[in-house]
Design a protein around this nucleic acid. Structure first.
Length: 294
RNA sequence: GGUGCCAUAGCUCAGUUGGUAGAGCAAAGGACUGAAAAUCCUUGUGUCCCUCGUUCGAUUCGUGGUGGCACCA
């Protein structure tokens, strides 16, 4: 019988962590996190990473195993996660993949294309270019280097254009030739479980969880990280708003309200990301128990 | 108590030389292959505070209210 990867996904604040613990116990297995921010050990409170008790109850992977100083990417995550899964499957028939980062989950389930490492210096250059010359100039460059991508991508999205360009320039090969979109075969079975809640309930939970984070010391955590605010990892809901507060751009109350608002927006965005996936079995978090799911 | 200013979308406000109105933010929906908690796109009908009047027609002008703000007593 094939090994099985049980994927538990859902928007922020829906209750993945709690359910994942009981599922892990039910299968006597471990949890592999699929969260693009919980991998950073410096950002515990603001990312609602599992706490000490939870980590002690079930072995977790990819929680705080990297530093914000690293340039971490979905590609690296795919490699590391697959290597880890291979080892873990030697001991467990079923493994839990739990998280809210759609792209990271896709990286494990379908794979993403093998691009060469990002050239950060080049990226910085291109960002400068964007500042001084404007988006049109980058668009024009992309049209020259990679017509296919130029036709396909969102030309109003600077990040997409920048990314395509940096690959073209760094490798001398069009981005569209790297990006095949081919689904990689996995030697394990994948079962996707989506957790959801009525919108209002989800939003209420998110709002109160933000208050809880503040009580748990988010302000202090953010203050410590403030000197590193330029890092990509810290472009994260819960930190950027408090950085604004430190800089006197908002008062604390407003900052907290914005964290709540942006967390709600994020949850909605996650839901629309998964809405197009046909292979997810959705469960109401209120009624989701191990027995029903398994 | 008097005088002046203001009252328009959930919020802040613009506007209509009188022909029932539009920005920003919020909100909702969407896209997504190494920054993904990122980045980007789409969506604006609301007793234009109430009353009476002038007018073919008033959210717009006038009278009187109500509420808010400011100044004078």
């Amino acid at each position: 019988m094939k090994n099985r990867l049980l994927v538990l996904l859902g928007p922020t604040g829906v209750g993945k962590t709690a359910l994942s613990l009981s599922l892990a116990k039910r299968f006597a297995t471990v949890i592999v996190s699929s969260d693009a921010r919980q991998v950073f050990r410096e950002m515990k409170i603001g990312t609602a990473a599992p706490g000490e008790e939870e980590l002690a109850a079930v072995p977790h992977y990819f929680i705080g195993n990297h530093s914000i100083n690293e340039h971490y990417t979905a590609g690296k995550y795919e490699l590391e996660a697959l290597e880890l899964l291979e080892k873990l499957f030697e001991q467990h028939k079923t493994i839990l993949l739990v998280g809210g980062s759609g792209l990271y989950i896709d990286a494990v389930c379908n794979g993403i294309d093998d691009f060469p490492d990002t050239d950060l210096a080049l990226r910085k250059n291109l960002m400068q270019h964007l500042e001084t010359e404007g988006l049109d100039s980058l668009r024009f460059q992309l049209k020259q280097l990679d017509e296919a991508t130029y036709q396909r991508i969102d030309l109003k999205n600077p990040q997409r254009i920048l990314r395509a360009l940096e690959v073209c320039i760094a490798t001398g090969k069009p981005y569209s030739e790297w990006k095949t979109g081919v689904t990689k075969k996995r030697n394990f079975e994948i079962v996707k479980i989506g957790l959801t809640r009525p919108r209002e309930e989800l939003y209420t939970r998110i709002n109160s969880r933000v208050i809880q984070m503040m009580n748990d010391g988010l302000l202090e955590e953010a203050r410590k990280l403030y000197p590193y605010k330029g890092l990509t990892a810290l472009k994260t809901v819960g930190y950027t708003e408090l950085f604004d507060y430190f800089e006197g751009k908002t008062d604390l109350e407003t900052a907290v309200q914005l964290i709540q608002q942006h967390s709600r927006n994020y949850a909605k965005k996650q839901l629309s990301y998964w809405a197009r996936y046909k292979d997810i079995r959705w469960f109401e978090a209120r009624f989701a128990t191990c027995r029903k799911i398994v």
